[in-house]
Amino acid sequence: MNPRRTLHVLGSVELGTLALLLLNLVTVHHRTISGVLGPVHGLAYTATIITAVLLAGGRTQVWLRAFVPGIGGLLAARAVGSRPVPE
């Protein structure tokens, strides 16, 4: 899996869990849903940042974009592009 695809998947999971958390908040506000989705969103957010830092290859703009909650992973995926990361 290329770096852009990895960040895109993590960013999508992060955005999806955030959307579900907000939907739960404005509708039924069920504690069990929040209790499950909250940690999943936190893990996805943290994994997105760590992955962006590892894949940045010295490009600060990549990992800085990952810090934006919700869409940071998708922004970082766009910044990574599909070029190979130097080792």
Results as ranks from 00 to 15, higher is better:
Ala19Glu: 05
Ala19Thr: 13
Ala19Cys: 09
Ala19Leu: 14
Leu20His: 03
Leu20Asn: 01
Leu21Glu: 01
Leu21Ser: 02
Leu21Pro: 00
Leu21Gly: 02
Leu21Val: 07
Leu21Lys: 05
Leu21Ala: 03
Leu21Trp: 02
Leu22Met: 13
Leu22Gly: 08
Leu22Arg: 07
Leu22Ala: 11
Leu22Ile: 14
Leu22Gln: 14
Leu23Gly: 15
Leu23Pro: 01
Leu23Asn: 08
Leu23Lys: 03
Asn24His: 07
Asn24Cys: 09
Asn24Ser: 07
Leu25Pro: 00
Leu25Phe: 05
Leu25Ser: 03
Val26Ser: 11
Val26Phe: 15
Val26Thr: 14
Val26Cys: 07
Thr27Gln: 14
Thr27Glu: 10
Thr27Leu: 11
Val28Ala: 12
Val28Arg: 11
Val28Tyr: 09
His29Met: 10
His29Pro: 00
His29Asp: 13
His30Tyr: 13
His30Gln: 15
His30Gly: 10
His30Pro: 02
Arg31Ile: 12
Arg31Val: 13
Thr32Leu: 12
Thr32Trp: 08
Thr32Tyr: 08
Thr32Gln: 06
Ile33Val: 15
Ile33Pro: 00
Ser34Lys: 07
Ser34Ile: 04
Ser34Asn: 10
Ser34Thr: 12
Ser34Leu: 04
Ser34Arg: 05
Ser34Phe: 10
Gly35Ala: 08
Gly35Ser: 09
Gly35Ile: 12
Val36Trp: 03
Val36Asp: 04
Val36Cys: 02
Val36Pro: 02
Val36Ser: 01
Leu37Val: 05
Leu37Pro: 00
Leu37Ile: 04
Leu37Glu: 00
Leu37Trp: 00
Gly38Cys: 06
Gly38Pro: 05
Pro39Gln: 05
Pro39Ala: 08
Pro39Lys: 07
Pro39Asp: 08
Val40Cys: 05
Val40Phe: 05
Val40Met: 12
Val40Trp: 00
Val40Arg: 00
Val40Glu: 00
Val40Ser: 02
His41Asn: 09
His41Val: 09
His41Glu: 06
His41Ile: 09
His41Tyr: 12
His41Gly: 03
His41Leu: 06
His41Ala: 06
Gly42Glu: 13
Gly42Arg: 14
Gly42Ser: 11
Gly42Ala: 13
Gly42Gln: 14
Gly42Cys: 13
Leu43Val: 14
Leu43Trp: 11
Leu43Gln: 06
Leu43Ala: 15
Leu43Met: 10
Leu43Glu: 03
Leu43Ile: 14
Leu43Thr: 15
Leu43Phe: 13
Leu43Lys: 06
Ala44His: 00
Tyr45Ala: 03
Tyr45Leu: 08
Tyr45Trp: 15
Tyr45His: 07
Tyr45Val: 02
Thr46His: 02
Thr46Asn: 01
Thr46Ile: 11
Thr46Asp: 01
Ala47Ile: 12
Ala47Trp: 07
Ala47Cys: 09
Ala47Glu: 01
Thr48Met: 04
Thr48Ala: 03
Thr48Ile: 08
Thr48Ser: 04
Thr48His: 01
Thr48Val: 11
Thr48Lys: 01
